[in-house]
């Protein structure tokens, strides 16, 4: 099963197996990773599952949709060029080894 590393602002890392088809947000919730709030449960409606994606994987990620792009303008922590909403990134074999960094706040 593909693995994803969630890096906390303090440098701690959690490495998680993510089933193909699950979102990075769901995997974080189901593995009890602090720092992903996901108030709306994956509806792209709340911008509280913000992550910064490792640059090396930028090309392999699905493009940012219109809704996600708008919501990224509304994150609590500052939007960076590598900002994504983790509910909108579905796991695939290609993304095995992906690393994401969690922002210092989601609300």
């Amino acid at each position: 099963m593909p693995k994803v590393t969630y890096r906390h602002p303090d440098g701690r890392e959690d490495v998680v197996d993510v089933p193909v088809g699950w979102s990075l947000m769901e995997a974080a919730i189901q593995n009890d990773i602090e720092g992903i709030v996901a108030e709306c449960g994956g509806g792209c409606a709340c911008a509280t599952c913000h992550v910064y994606v490792d640059e090396a994987y930028a090309d392999r990620l699905p493009a940012i949709g219109d809704m996600e792009g708008d919501m990224l303008e509304c994150t609590a922590a500052e939007r960076q060029p590598n900002s994504r909403l983790s509910c909108q990134i579905k796991m695939s074999a290609e993304l095995d080894g992906l690393q994401v960094t969690l922002p210092d706040r989601q609300t």
Binding site: C44, A47, M67, D70, M71, E73, C74
Partner: peptide
């Protein structure tokens, strides 16, 4: 309606 940025603002 399909305008999330307005909602968040």
């Amino acid at each position: 309606v399909n305008r999330p940025a307005d909602h968040m603002a």
